[in-house]
Nucleic acid binder design. Sequence first.
DNA 1: CTAGTAAGTCCGGAATCTGGACTCACCATA
DNA 2: TATGGTGAGTCCAGATTCCGGACTTACTAG
Lengths: 147, 147
Amino acid sequence: MTAVSSQPRACSVARTLDIVGEKWALLAVREVFLGNRTFDEMVRRTGAPRDTLAARLRTLTGAGILERRQYCEHPARFEYHLTAAGRDLYPVIVTLMRWGDRYLAGDDGPPLVLQHRCGHQVLAQVVCQACGEPLEARDTRALIPGG
Amino acid sequence: MTAVSSQPRACSVARTLDIVGEKWALLAVREVFLGNRTFDEMVRRTGAPRDTLAARLRTLTGAGILERRQYCEHPARFEYHLTAAGRDLYPVIVTLMRWGDRYLAGDDGPPLVLQHRCGHQVLAQVVCQACGEPLEARDTRALIPGG
DNA sequence: CTAGTAAGTCCGGAATCTGGACTCACCATA
DNA sequence: TATGGTGAGTCCAGATTCCGGACTTACTAG
């Protein structure tokens, strides 16, 4: 069988977006990063329809990104916490944020600034872990393992 | 006026996702990064419905992320190219890819590997541009400018 | 003359998203 | 004791999007 080559590409970007690319999903995760862990708080901060947010939180907990913890029995109250996998989404969120800061911020500048413990404003930079150089598309080449 | 605080958060992540967070948008951008610039090629590689892809390409060119260039007059043929803003989405794509490689790759490992010109496999790492330390959520603090 | 490619558009049905109302359980306050 | 508020959802009907597939137009290759 010669390769069909017309199959959609198997790709980690696509797989990741299947989980995290639905509307409101990453904004829910953003809120948890910012410390807003309860359902109602997330509704307020994101503006997502309650229905949709509930569905996203189910997907995200199902995918092992968030964990739903009960912190009060009567009445039942829950908090969402990041798992290790969820914390590893931080790079995705800060790179999205940086792009928006650069290309979509108005005259007022970015609406939210992160401060690093080093004292400076966080400017997320993506580097090659091996050599430490900033990553740019033109410096990379795609290989298909076993292809 | 005491803050209403119930407005959805003004946020660069949200703004960016408004453009780039629709289904198939980032996969179209991924294909352009991989050198597949024509409409039909993108349809084949992403698996997106032609209709939807056409809409996304309009959004992306409208947002200044892609540029539509005619490379043949008769018959009319077009290629999509990244603008500077589009190239700056590379960090978003490689961080998504890295997350997927880590959490969603099967036994076969990642379906696509990027090689850096330094010779190593690209492992995207996000660092604080100021101090060079790898970025983690717990090392950062959110501030609302003028808030 | 038939096939194939490129770049879409058009269509009707399916799936999702949306805002708003509603529920249930509890607490506070007057 | 009635009123209102919070938290965590669910339910619904209507609007919007998404989907696959067929179709179009303009050309080239055999």
